[in-house]
Design a protein around this nucleic acid. Sequence first.
DNA 1: CCATCAAGTCAACAACTGTTGACTTCGACG
DNA 2: CGTCGAAGTCAACAGTTGTTGACTTGATGG
Lengths: 186, 186
Amino acid sequence: MPERRARSAVATRAAILDAARARFGTNGYERTTMRAVASDVGVDPALVVRYFTNKESLFAEAAEFDLHLPDLHDVPVQELATVLMPRFFAVWENDGAFLPLLRAAASSPRAAEAMLQVFARQVAPALAAVAADHADERAALVGSQVLGLAFSRYVLRVPPLADMTHEQLMRWVGPVLEYYLTTEPQ
Amino acid sequence: MPERRARSAVATRAAILDAARARFGTNGYERTTMRAVASDVGVDPALVVRYFTNKESLFAEAAEFDLHLPDLHDVPVQELATVLMPRFFAVWENDGAFLPLLRAAASSPRAAEAMLQVFARQVAPALAAVAADHADERAALVGSQVLGLAFSRYVLRVPPLADMTHEQLMRWVGPVLEYYLTTEPQ
DNA sequence: CCATCAAGTCAACAACTGTTGACTTCGACG
DNA sequence: CGTCGAAGTCAACAGTTGTTGACTTGATGG
């Protein structure tokens, strides 16, 4: 029974990470305290730093994630939205591992840097597969629309946007993504 | 000479407000300290609270502003971007009275509510003048693109976007605003 | 010259923050 | 049983924060 004695150590570590994700997601970086995270798990604050050494490291680990963007090389232009938007909803809703980073990035340079790297390492390369030219500009523009949509719908909760269905949003935003990725501006 | 003795009181109050705007704009709410604002003006922290009673009230006053959106009734569809984008740059750059609110809205429900009201009272009515139908949805979509652009360019500083000129951005984003406001989605 | 009153300073408070190091608890194993 | 090490607690530190109330300054006007 080699697994017996690990019943708690890794479990509470994961619980702390979950609580941290939730706190960072709703309150942002500075308004999240080590004590609050610890108390969410019912544990001493010292244990949190014992496992994660730092508030900064705790945040870094809580903000790690993978967008799982698919390969777009063989996707027809008209179906880009149909492929990308479901990924968008998956990342921002429910599990919402991305929301903490967005909230924190607004007021913390550290988080902003982390978000930039997610963009540079995952979003930009994936979109480069379909961009005609100016790949980096096109990817950044798509990113700006996607970020704005997330901010309006999930942070600000702008009434019309927050209430629209996935399909309605896809119909509105799809052509814009397609335009940014393929059309040459006048 | 009725104005003589007011040489300083209102002036330093305005200076404090300016410093607060700058700090809130670059650091967000929580990372901005009363002491830092006071020291920017070369004044005692106690004076700041003497004039503004609170950090919260100081922020509220610093985040007050008017978008000065023009009347769009007689603007031709193709020139919408030419009229709207300069307003965008004016609001987000330099003085940047809008940036504090955006940063704060990400982690403070109060600030998010304030931002929503700016949208409802200034942006939506102005855009309703040119929206074909679904005026509220169209306005919200325009708002999402504008907000995303501001977040990417001024908060995250995504390299391609942060370095583009006003005219380059207008050329890219203009057609999108026009599309959101006038085109019927498939 | 002296009283007044706005403009501003000073020191200090209570609360909260991240972080530390020494201590306790307790199940497993010889 | 005894001990050993992991899992966790405890109290305290040093620093920072918003905010307060009593004090000083200095020009003005009678």
